[in-house]
Amino acid sequence: MTTPLLKVTGLCKSYSGRVAVDEVSFALASGQTLGLIGPNGAGKSTTVSMLCGLLKPDRGEILLDGQRVNQGNSAAKHKIGLVPQDLAIYEELSARENLKLFGALYGLTGDLLKQRCQAALDLVTLSDRAGDKPSTYSGGMKRRLNIAAALLHDPQLLILDEPTVGVDPQSRNAIFDSLETLKRQGRSLIYTSHYMEEVERLADHIVIIDHGKVIANETPEELYRRLPSQAALNVELGDVEAVSLAALLAGIQARPGVTGVNTVGNSLRIALGAADDALPMLEWLTAQGCRPRHFSTARTDLEEIFLTLTGHSLRD
């Protein structure tokens, strides 16, 4: 990695003797998206609060573009946009008034503020409802306004703390469209979630936190490589009686590229070292007299990675 935009070193934070964040370190290059994942209570929100200068770390350092992030009117805060988990907007101010307020907090005034408000509204496709109060919006629209409010001062780093909580699939897609646009524009993002599929869609780099500690800090590809299997082949057999299941399972296990196999009813779930191993496996099964009624392949997901790393599910 070249000189990182954000460098987090040895962050620690305790509350009344309970350790919430323990020696968290990671870095983020300019233009990249970092997925910060972990179960509820893992220390994600405390880490985000320290990244935004809301909480003072007990130990450790956060440098953004070479500037230390502190509480108060720290200069580094001008480079950070926070999209909090809560809908942190004033329901009884119009969307435009909300944006004008949050822009003014970063010193924006006059025409520049107006232009930035309009650009943010366009990005989240709320221009036609700019004069309405968020109290009249749907949940998804409020979430989009929540994002727009963080963009007005054109931050180098946008921190999104679970921005899709409680959002319907359609609105979630709209939010992701906006985030992908930001990513294409070269903006750096930190995205926290306990939804792996969201992080997989956006992140260039993933930091997994559990019990306040970083347990993985690498690219998705590197994380996948940690697993013995990269793909799964699911096969629903048409006539199980025609073959000896025990002999079949032993045969599958002996095939090259197979890292595991198990049965669920009439179906086989075969773990493969690579997705390329799926087709030869299907051909072999057919040659053994097994006619698949239905089959599918799937990539191993981050959920399984988390399970492998921590021994428990992400949403336990």
Binding site: S49, C52, G53, L54, Q71, G72, N73, S74, A75, K77, H78, I80, L82, P84, Q85, D86, L87, A88, I89, Y90, F102, L105, Y106, G107, A149
Partner: peptide, 12 residues
């Protein structure tokens, strides 16, 4: 509602 933190996330 998280508004307080959002205000304080600004450089003020």
């Amino acid at each position: 509602m998280g508004l307080w933190n959002r205000l304080l996330a600004a450089p003020i």
